[in-house]
Write a protein that binds this DNA or RNA. Structure first.
Length: 853
RNA sequence: GGGCGGUUAGCUCAGUGGUAGAGCACCGGCCUUACACGCCGGCUGUCACAGGUUCAAGUCCUGUACCGCCCACCA
């Protein structure tokens, strides 16, 4: 065997640049299309939002998945490990708007000569929808390259031949086809209803995209006069600007204070609108004055009351968040004094909700309808998670997918799924149980998958939303804004008797939720589908259980009546050292690529893999240094082992056999841990063994190994065997350094080599038994001698004699004889006077030998 | 308000019934022909708190406190 390729001074620098292209060229991670299903391991890789920033959280969770992928590959599985890019949706639109300083105006015609500005102008440039989409596509292509560079540098072993984009043609086709099937099955429907609405993005949003934020607000105590009888009643509201939208007051049916008022009318202040007082059990006598103003719509409770009490709609908030124009009086809204109402309202119309609030409070003060001063409070307000202003509730026509009637079945699916860690299931159940409406899947946006639907235009030019036209699946994907339904001519678009396209696009989760269908070749590649679906693993972080995981389970349940995967491995988050979620700004300071360059990819992976499944983990550069140290140690130990592999012979020595026996049991444990997705435990155990291997085994055996007799042959064989096994155990974690060492000495990629098997090691070393104990005892004696040496200030170079070495009774003479030579040589001890004491005393007295020796 | 997780050495974390652990940090020593990007040794703990079960509890049970997250409510 030639070891010419073992370098004198091995270094980590440059290993990423060396191996990444080689893995690519050798197709090391290429999926085997010929593998039978039982040998396939398929992974539903999370498609990262490419327009989001790259941050260490990505590195963290993708490393976890990659460790599993590499482990399964070495176990002989054909790993189906695609990579997707989530490029559609709002994050991209927002990034394009800011990056180029443009704004999409769907009413504009396509401008083929349009060139994107180099830098954003102070005033946003309005461009057509096709121009806007082109910019989105161009920018995401750039973003995807940055992600790919990062994944390659990190050593993520995806098959780069298997990539998809959620805005790509194939993903659009799958999204549209599955939507049409839901529509045909009656599981998707369109309705006009109050919907959560973001006023800046001007789109509907779903329950899953909400988040609460704490905002300062104030209770305004406002007087409503009785319509007759001269009394008055006081309500408290945080949104006085919605008084013109008030349709009723509501009190609890058992609330004695207001019982006599139920069924009577009161007049809204300023606008003099007669509104009824109603009873409803949801009204809380403890809150505010115990009687509430129902507006259309201030919050979700208003929607409930409005629906259950069959109240009219008086909507004042326009899609852009401003108060819309309203006509009062005979031809408009009812008022006891229409002229006054119009005057009051005109002062508010066009203002944002916040500005209108200030204004109306002034007026209420002037009229005396505001009782006392507003009382400042802090309260939670619903926001779109990507939004900047509180959500409004606006009535609009939207597409929904039925979920409420599937809730029980979905809970069942969650129980079928194997979760790692298992407690993450409760987050899922929590979410499913808390659902309060069907899934709103339509968005009034541009860069997304369009709904493949047209509507007939009535002779009078209005749209007949009930007269839907849908394409055959074979035509998909289509864009109804440019494609024409069968049987129509393009010229009929928008014309009476013609057609119009549905203007909306799908929620990004409506496409992401189909990732297994997109990657596994649903309806397009029957062989691949059979090979890969249902998938083996869904890896993801816990924050998107309610979105991605939930919606994928839902879609698979509806389409396949089955789970989309067997296992869900949930990663935690990366936290700041102060235990807060790693903030965006911080994530940008610590760029992932910078980390990889500074510490080396293997070192960063080491830190990531130490964060166990589901465990939020502190960002910790010191752990990366430890990982780097491990990688360097691996280089040096390997160099040492491979510097002498001859003579090789039967493993006969106790120390050698004991070390290998422990290694065999390590292999069993590590394999078990990785099968259970506990990569952190696997790494911990392997690492601990490796340091023992270096610090104890090598030190004990190296002098014997230096010879050329049977003892040396035993040591050489044991050391090379152990090295190969440890490299393999570490390969999923440290793919670069292990591949480098492997290449010094073996053919092919370590990442395609067979995972070690304990039985094979034991075939060489014998099953765990007396030698295992002897090796442990040798380590203990070594620790004792080192401690004595240190106490006397004797460096290792000083040869010593043990004038008295007392060993516990259970160390019998035969066992000692088997390890004596190695223990003495490994500790630079000339000779030892040994006593065996049944009392269990374990001690040594040593003294320095004359310098000459 | 409901749910889930956590609380172990200065820090980051292992440890699911049997004498408290690792790494980092810190202190001291060592050039020992794989590695000074190294090696050796040492210091460090009322295992959050209170009860209970047990021969035995960091570990199991009950409760409390605090931290984090998810959800709900938010007139």
């Amino acid at each position: 065997m030639s070891h010419a390729s073992v370098p004198d001074k091995p270094v980590l620098e440059g290993l990423e640049a060396k191996w990444t292209p080689r893995w690519d060229a050798d197709a090391v991670y290429r999926f085997d299309r010929t593998a039978p299903r039982e040998r396939v391991y398929s992974i539903d890789t999370p498609p990262p939002t490419v327009s989001g920033s790259l941050h260490v959280g990505h590195v963290f969770s993708y490393t976890h998945t990659d460790v599993i992928a590499r482990f399964q590959r070495m176990r002989g599985r054909a790993v189906f490990y695609p990579m997707g890019w989530d490029d559609n949706g709002l994050p991209t639109e927002r990034r394009v708007q800011n990056y180029y300083g443009v704004r999409c105006d769907p009413s504009l015609p396509f401008d083929p000569a349009f060139v994107a500005p180099d830098k954003p102008a102070s005033q946003a440039v309005s461009i057509s929808r096709p121009n806007f989409i082109a910019l989105c596509a161009a920018l995401t292509a750039e973003d995807e390259k940055a992600f790919e560079r990062l994944w390659r540098q990190l050593g993520v072993s995806v098959d780069w031949a298997l990539t998809y984009a959620t805005i790509g043609r194939h993903a659009q086709r799958v999204s549209q086809a599955m939507f049409l099937r839901l529509l045909a099955a009656g599981r998707a429907y369109q309705t006009e209803a109050p919907t959560l609405w973001d006023v800046d993005f001007r789109t509907a949003v779903a329950q899953a995209e909400l988040e609460d934020r704490e905002l300062p607000g104030a209770y305004h105590r406002v007087r409503f006069a009785w319509a007759s009888g001269g009394g008055q009643v006081e309500i408290e509201t945080t949104r006085p600007e919605l008084i013109p939208a008030c349709v009723a007051l509501v009190a609890h049916p058992d609330d004695a204070r207001y019982r006599s008022l139920i069924g009577k009318n009161v007049l809204t202040p300023l606008f003099q609108v007669p509104v009824p007082v109603k009873a409803h059990p949801l009204a809380d006598p403890e809150k505010g004055s115990g009687i509430a103003m129902i507006c259309t719509f201030g919050d979700l409770t208003d929607v409930t009351w409005w629906r259950e009490l069959a109240l009219p709609v008086r909507a004042v908030i326009a899609p852009n968040g401003a108060l819309r124009p309203v006509t009062w009086g005979a031809s408009g809204w009812e008022s006891g004094d229409a002229a006054a109402a119009q005057r009051e309202y005109d002062a508010l119309a066009g203002l944002s909700a916040v500005k209108a609030r200030v204004k109306i409070v002034e007026r209420l003060k002037e009229t005396g309808d505001l009782i006392g001063e507003p009382k400042p409070i802090t309260h939670h307000v619903k926001f779109f998670e990507k939004g900047d202003r509180p959500l409004e509730i606006i009535t609009s026509r939207q597409w929904f997918v039925q979920t409420m009637n599937a809730r029980e079945a979905l809970i069942g699916r969650g129980r079928e799924l194997q979760w790692f860690p298992s407690h993450m299931r409760s987050r899922y159940e929590n979410w499913v149980n808390g659902l309060n409406g069907d899934w709103c899947v339509s968005r009034q946006r541009f860069f997304g998958v369009p709904f493949p639907v047209w509507y007939r235009v009535r002779p009078d030019g209005t749209t007949d939303h009930d007269a839907r036209l849908v394409p055959a699946e074979s035509r998909l994907p289509i864009d109804p804004s440019t494609d024409t339904p069968d049987g129509f001519e393009p010229g009929q678009r928008g014309a009476p008797g013609g057609f119009v396209g549905d203007p909306d696009v799908m929620d990004t989760w409506a496409t992401s939720s189909l990732s297994p269908f997109i990657v596994c070749g649903w309806e397009t590649d029957a062989a691949l589908w059979k090979q890969t679906f249902p998938m083996d693993l869904r890896p993801q972080a816990h924050d998107i259980i309610r979105t991605w995981l939930f919606s994928t389970v839902l879609r698979s349940h509806l389409e396949m009546d089955a789970l989309p995967w067997k296992h869900a491995a949930i990663s935690g988050w990366v936290l700041d050292p102060d235990r807060k979620k790693m903030s965006k700004s911080k994530g940008n300071v610590v760029t992932p690529m910078g980390l990889l360059e500074e510490h080396g990819s293997d070192a960063v992976r080491y830190w990531a893999a130490k964060g166990g499944p589901g465990v939020d983990t502190a960002f910790d550069a010191s752990q990366m240094k430890v990982g780097r140290r491990l990688a360097i140690k691996l280089l040096n130990a390997s160099k040492f082992v491979l510097a002498k592999t001859e003579p090789a012979g039967p493993v006969t020595e106790a120390i050698d056999r004991g070390m290998l026996q422990r290694l065999a049991s390590l292999v069993r444990e590590v394999t078990q841990s990785l099968e259970a997705y506990d990569y952190a435990a696997a790494l911990r155990e392997t690492e601990a063994f490796f340091w023992t291997f270096c610090d104890d085994y090598i030190e004990l055996a190296k002098r014997r190994r230096a010879g050329d007799g049977p003892g040396a042959a035993s040591a050489c064989a044991a050391a090379t065997t152990a090295l190969a096994v440890q490299l393999k155990l570490l390969a999923p974690f440290l793919p670069f350094v292990t591949e480098e060492v492997w290449s010094w000495w073996r053919e092919g990629s370590i990442h395609r080599s067979a995972w070690p098997v304990a039985d094979e090691i034991e075939a060489v070393a014998g099953p765990g038994g007396p030698e295992d104990a002897m090796f442990r005892r040798a380590s203990e004696i070594t620790a004792l001698l080192r401690s004595k040496r240190s106490a006397l200030g004797l460096g290792f170079g000083v040869r010593v004699r043990a004038t008295d070495l007392t060993l516990p009774g259970e160390t019998d003479r035969a066992a000692w004889a088997a390890i004596e030579r190695d223990v003495l040589a490994g500790n630079n001890v000339m000779d030892a006077a040994v006593r065996f004491l049944p009392s269990g005393v374990f001690d040594a007295t040593i003294e320095a030998m004359p310098a000459d020796g």
